[in-house]
Amino acid sequence: MPSLPPSDAGLDARLRLIVSSYRQLTGKPLIADAPADMTALRDAMWHVPRAIVAHGTEDDPIFFYGNRLALQLFEMSFEEFARLPSRLSAEPLAQEARVKLLEKVSLQGYVDGYSGMRIAKSGRRFMIADTTVWNLVDEQGNHQGQAAVFVAQG
């Protein structure tokens, strides 16, 4: 079972950005009754029954967050996941569809209802469904990455 990453001011700020960007773009809460207290928010995001992942703005974006369910699906520790280029979460054959999705998100702000195949560390494939992907935008309007929330099927 993956363990909650240690408290870190930079990661905590990014977690708040995930939650606030989702609400700003979709008009809905990512986590019902999201707590204001950072410790409680970190715990709520970690244990929510949907996978939450996020990557930054590097040339080859790297994941900086995956919650407990995401890490279980991808069969990685937090430390491993936080070094993974997000493109490697999809099969090579699914790369083109993933790129088109992220371009659409960049233009529209978010996309609902996406589904696609993903690949775990072991090579096991799994389908993600009912996926929302959104831009992470800070208070100054700067693009800080993208995040996704999804359920796995099969």
Rank of each mutant, 00 (worst) to 15 (best):
Q24V: 06
V53T: 14
A34R: 04
A97E: 13
A9C: 07
F78K: 03
E96Q: 15
A147F: 01
G27S: 09
R118A: 06
G113A: 06
L107C: 08
R87E: 08
P35H: 08
R50F: 02
G10Q: 13
S122W: 14
T132S: 15
H143R: 09
A34N: 08
A152R: 08
L17W: 03
N135S: 14
G154D: 15
R125M: 12
M76Q: 13
N67L: 09
F63G: 01
V105K: 06
P6W: 00
H47E: 14
R14K: 15
V111F: 03
T39Q: 13
P92I: 07
A9P: 13
I52G: 02
Q95I: 15
L17T: 09
A120G: 10
V133S: 04
Y65H: 08
G123P: 10
Q146E: 08
L41A: 04
D112C: 10
L93E: 14
P85Y: 05
S7A: 15
V19L: 09
Q108W: 01
D12T: 08
S21D: 04
L15C: 06
D33S: 15
V111E: 02
S89C: 11
K104N: 11
A34S: 12
M76G: 07
P49V: 01
L84H: 11
A44V: 05
P85G: 07
A97S: 14
